[in-house]
């Protein structure tokens, strides 16, 4: 990669200054202040709310403060949910079905699940707790019917919960005992009824990304250049670009996914439109997934970003 390539920013806190403020508070001894900021964003679009909670949950070095806060405020639902979220994340790497520390992972997930059972019992409209229970249901192997039951409970509160839809998409894939037919069926159903510009409208793109990685490991673009696949990616691209994104932070993910897949498939102009919308921001997962194509993708980025500076 040459020195002139445009910088890549996969840390959303570097992209959105208010997220940096929240993280700084969480890590700088003002956890209650960070929680207040999270709470202020909790009623917006689910994908933004989850982006913010994930940012705090993934912040390093907050465990002691969180434990102290919970001792003083045992009834703080957000802090309890955050604690469960961190427990899931620390069990997370081992939640892979092939992981050797499966028993430890299951114990961690079960601890988190028990906190979440109570949170959902106390308040069945809690989107954040139900969302995390989709993660635990899959990690604990509770079966597809239980994942679906939980998703329906959540969808009754928020039928457009894009992060939950991504979890369901995963649960439906062959790796977790489902099928690509079922996964795409769900993704197309969600995308078809989604608003233009929305994250959920791009769920079918996530399905293609997952299938490409699962079947090919991201090595070749044969899968992506199939006419049917390309047509679906382009349709999703049209819909995502049709209006300004309704989400504050979460749009980075679908734009990165489409930019990467269309770029790898050789649709350079289309990919460029999404790279242009992204600026320096990129979602880490899909960007890293296309490692073999990064030089080419960077070329597309540098051309559209240079053009942007010219204007």
């Amino acid at each position: 990669m040459s020195a002139s390539m445009p910088p890549v920013q996969t840390d959303l806190a570097e992209v959105f200054p208010d997220l940096m403020t929240i993280r700084a508070r969480a890590q700088g001894g003002d956890l209650p202040g960070a929680l207040a900021e999270v709470r202020a964003r909790a009623t917006g679009l689910a994908e933004d709310a989850i982006t913010v909670t994930e940012l705090v949950a993934e912040s390093e070095g907050i465990d002691d403060d969180l434990a102290a806060h919970l001792r003083a405020h045992a009834d703080d639902r957000l802090a309890r949910t955050l604690d469960a979220h961190r427990t899931i994340l620390s069990a997370g790497s081992a939640a892979d079905p092939a992981a050797s520390t499966r028993a430890d992972s299951a114990a961690g997930l079960a601890r988190a699940e028990q906190t979440l059972i109570r949170l959902c019992a106390e308040d069945p409209t809690d989107r954040y707790a139900w969302y995390l229970r989709l993660v635990t249901a899959r990690g604990l192997g509770l079966g597809w019917s239980e994942s679906r039951r939980r998703y329906r409970r959540l969808a009754a509160v928020d039928p457009h919960h894009a992060p939950a839809q991504r979890q369901i998409l995963r649960s439906l894939q062959p790796r977790w005992g489902g099928s690509w037919e079922a996964a795409f069926g769900f993704a197309r159903e969600v995308s078809a009824t989604a608003a233009e510009g929305s994250v959920e409208g791009a769920l079918v793109v996530t399905a293609h990304l997952d299938r490409w990685l699962a079947e090919d490991g991201g090595a070749q673009n044969d899968y992506l250049v199939q006419p049917g696949v390309l047509a679906e990616l382009e349709e999703a691209s049209d819909r995502l670009l049709a209006v300004p994104p309704p989400s504050t932070y979460a749009w980075v993910q679908p734009h990165t996914e489409i930019a990467v897949l269309l770029g790898v498939a050789g649709r350079r102009v289309r990919a460029g439109q999404h790279f242009s919308a992204l600026g320096p921001a990129l979602a880490e997962g899909p960007w890293a997934a296309a490692a073999r194509y990064q030089e080419d993708l960077q070329t597309m980025r540098s051309s559209v970003l240079a053009e942007g500076r010219r204007r």
Binding site: I117, R118, C120, A121, A137, L142, G143, S145, E146, R149
Partner: peptide, 21 residues
Amino acid sequence: PEQRGAVIGGVVDTLARLRWG
């Protein structure tokens, strides 16, 4: 048979609702 997981989860949640909800 295809609803086993959901029925187990449903019973757990209903019992939890009466304890804490």
